[in-house]
Amino acid sequence: MPFALTKPEKFQIQNIGDRIYAGLREDIMLLRLHPGEELNIKELSEKLEVSRSPVRDAVMRLAKEGLADVLPQKGTRVSRIDPHRVEEERFLRESLEVRLLDLFLKRCTPADLAQMEQLVEVQAQCLREARMADFLDKDEAFHSVFFHAADKQLCWELIENMSGHYRRARLMTLWDAQIVGCAIDEHKEMLRCIREADSRRLTHLEENHCRKINIQELDLFRQYPDYFIDRKERKE
């Protein structure tokens, strides 16, 4: 672990176990802790300057989310990205987001549209400054507006809590500047459809936007095979 782990004090959460969990989860989601990397309870507790018990509890919570693998007699590791799970998480997101677009268009306010326009501008700035993790955060914020405007916050929370593999794969795709630029262009086109209340075009854009990860993931697997579970290995 060559980097400094996220300190629990960063999070305004009273319970130390919850803070450790939040910090480790952030480090995994931002790929500071790489897929397949060992999670040594003793080393983690020393780095975080806490006892082993809350670290062990946090790791078990991560395992329940599919973000850590507890291997008998082999220790615990950050879970490698599972292509099948990426597809399931993507399918969940697309199914919910596409389904609510008509409702969003009926309820969207000028303030919602202004917020989305501002987020796209910030994304462009993140691209210029090569801040890809921040870019992805703004990307998520952009899409969350669909759910909040449609009063479907619970659906968005479900997506957030069930996207550990999809989000990590998405962050890796953003290492390609061309992909990032395309995402911004697609968001701008979505904004045009929202202004014109073009439901059919917006739905088409959203479907294609979500499904691009399927093609991009193939390139990622070839470039970073150690970060992914091989499909044959999964069947075994």
Rank of each mutant, 00 (worst) to 15 (best):
L5H: 05
P8S: 02
E9F: 08
K10D: 07
K10I: 10
F11A: 10
Q12H: 14
I13G: 05
E26C: 00
L31W: 00
G36A: 04
G36D: 10
E37Q: 15
E43V: 10
K47R: 15
L48Y: 09
S51W: 04
R52K: 15
L62V: 09
L67W: 03
G75A: 04
T76Y: 01
V78L: 04
I81D: 12
R85K: 15
V86A: 10
E87K: 15
E88P: 00
E88Y: 13
E94Q: 13
R99A: 15
L101H: 02
L103I: 06
L103F: 02
A111I: 10
D112T: 02
Q123D: 02
Q123E: 15
A124E: 13
L127R: 08
M132L: 08
F135L: 06
S144P: 01
S144Y: 06
F146Y: 15
Q153G: 12
C155I: 01
E157S: 11
I159N: 08
Y166H: 14
M172H: 03
W175H: 11
I179M: 05
I184S: 03
H187N: 13
M190S: 08
R192H: 11
C193N: 09
E196K: 15
D198W: 10
S199P: 00
R201L: 13
H204V: 04
H204Y: 09
E206G: 02
E206N: 14
E217S: 14
E217W: 02
R222Y: 06
D226T: 15
D226N: 14
Y227I: 08
E236V: 14
